[in-house]
Every structure is written in structure tokens, then in C-alpha cells.
Amino acid sequence: MTALGNTRLAFIETLIELAEQDPKTVLVCADSVLVVKGRQFAQKYPDRFIDVGIAEQNAVNCAAGMAACGLIPYVATYAGFLTMRACEQIRTFVAYPGLNVKLIGANGGISAGEREGVTHQFFEDLGILRAIPGITIVVPADDTQVRLAARAIHKIHGPAYVRIGSGRDPRVDGREIPFELGKIRILAEHGKDLTLFTNGFVVNRALKAAERLAQEGIRAVVADVHTLKPLDKEGIITLLKQTGAAVTIEDHNIIGGLGSAIAECSVEDCPVPIQRIGLPDCFPRSGLPDPLLDYYHIGINDIVEAARAVVRKKKI
């Protein structure tokens, strides 16, 4: 049984820790203080807590104005309202001037949608932000990685986005490997038959699929691509060369996210058979996380089948 962590709490606890060390740290909410568990922050640092109301565009613009005056604002709300409602503000007033605004998006992926349905399931955030120049994008796998990611993006100057979940987010089973921004991390290495590239709250599925594949003699490397931008091209190409086939597993539309990033990387520098697993470009239904992921073919069986297929293609 997979243990659950709380990525929302992990973020806010880390932000409080950062605020203790750095007086420039500000939390900006759009009536999202409960969503991101921000009460603790607001009580401890009332002056550094700004809530503009249900107004994401204004939240991002206010953050841009604050960053232009030397502060480090964290705009934290639902991933989709942030990256879609305030998309142009992020693009033109944060990313274009390279301002030091941090963006924290909750309910990242269909599995983190709290059974709310499409309006609160966000599976386009990464593709949208990846198409905008200059934004560091991190997709942590669990609460521990959220803590590490938040500390890492605070240290760099410039726009960054960290995806968080519903607050009931699966912990990566039995592993805690150092996090380095911009570098893939190898989570498992059964052999060199193919690479399973994954990130976010579906990492456990990739790990379990790799174990099942090993039992039938297909030996996979499992690589966590937590930093989607800047992409660790060198690390990815090394694995593509070593294994000659890949499957990507993500909780995002298969267009624009991890699958696209790996495919782009491969096609330019090391073409190999690849299959992408993710939401198959459709609007999902409400549902509990695990059945929902299975329903949309982001299941362990789907990963195993995709792995068999790419390994077969490799041999042709």
C-alpha cells in the first residue's frame, strides 16, 4: 500500500522556512489560501501575505510588480487558473522581463483533481508553460520532492513553476534520492532494455511496471524527469543511447508535456522507438485517482504493454 504525503503542506512548510531566512519572500493568493494551506504563513507573516481575491490575472501582475521591486513573490493557486486564466500575464509580465516570480500550481494532473471533474483537473499546465521561453518547470513526484524543489527554485533568479497536487499525493515507494534541479534522477535500473521516463504522481506506476517487466525478462531503467525545463538533454540522450527504446509516463495530456519533451529530444539527437503514456488528448471524467488513471490508460498494464511494444520495435 502506497503511503500518501501532502504536497500542498510540503510547499507551505517550505515557504515558511524560506520566509524565515529571506525577508523578500511573499505569498500571493487568489482566494486560494485554504487550497495551499497558507493560513500558517499568513498568521506568521501577515505583511507578506497578499490575497487579491478570485483574480488570478491580478495576482500574477501584482507579483510581477513586486518582483520588479526586488521581492520574491510566490503565486499559489490551482494550476489551471494560474496557467490558463493568467497565462498571458505569466508570459508577458513575468517570463518576458525574466522577473523573479515563483508560480505554484495545485491539482496538477487528472489524478489530483479531487473528483471535481474537468474544471479542477489540470493536464495542460506543463505544455502551456513549456511553450513560453524562460520558465523553469518542476514536476515533483511527491511531498519530499516538493520541499526540495521549492528550496531549489528559491535559489535561482527568475520565473519558476512547481506543480503540486491535491494534498493526498502518493509517496514514491521506498526511495529518497537527492534532488538536483535540471538533472534527471535514476530511480531504478533493472537493465538496459529500455528507459521509462516519468515524473509527478505516477512515478510509482512506472516503478511497479519496471518490476513486472523484469520478471518477464525486459529490464528497464526508470528515470525521473522532475525538471521539465530546462530539460536534462545530456542525461536523457545518454539513456536513449544506452537503452535504445523508451516509454514516457505522465499525468498530463500526451501533447506538450514529458512525452513531447522526450520525443523532441530523441528525434533530434537519438531517434529510438518511443511510446507516450498520458491522458490521450481528451477531457477526463471525475473519479478517484487510481481508477481514473487506469481508465485513461495510465495503468501499470498499459506501461508494460507499451514497453513490450517499443522493445519489439527496437529489434526489427
Binding site: A63, G65, F93
Partner: peptide, 14 residues
């Protein structure tokens, strides 16, 4: 206007 508001809020904090 909203960017300007951010600058005014920043002035208070700095």
C-alpha cells in the same frame, strides 16, 4: 494598474 499595485505593495514591505 495591477502591476502598479504590486509596486505599491512592494514599497510597504521594502
Amino acid at each position: 494598474i495591477s502591476i502598479g499595485l504590486g509596486m505599491v505593495l512592494a514599497a510597504r514591505l521594502t
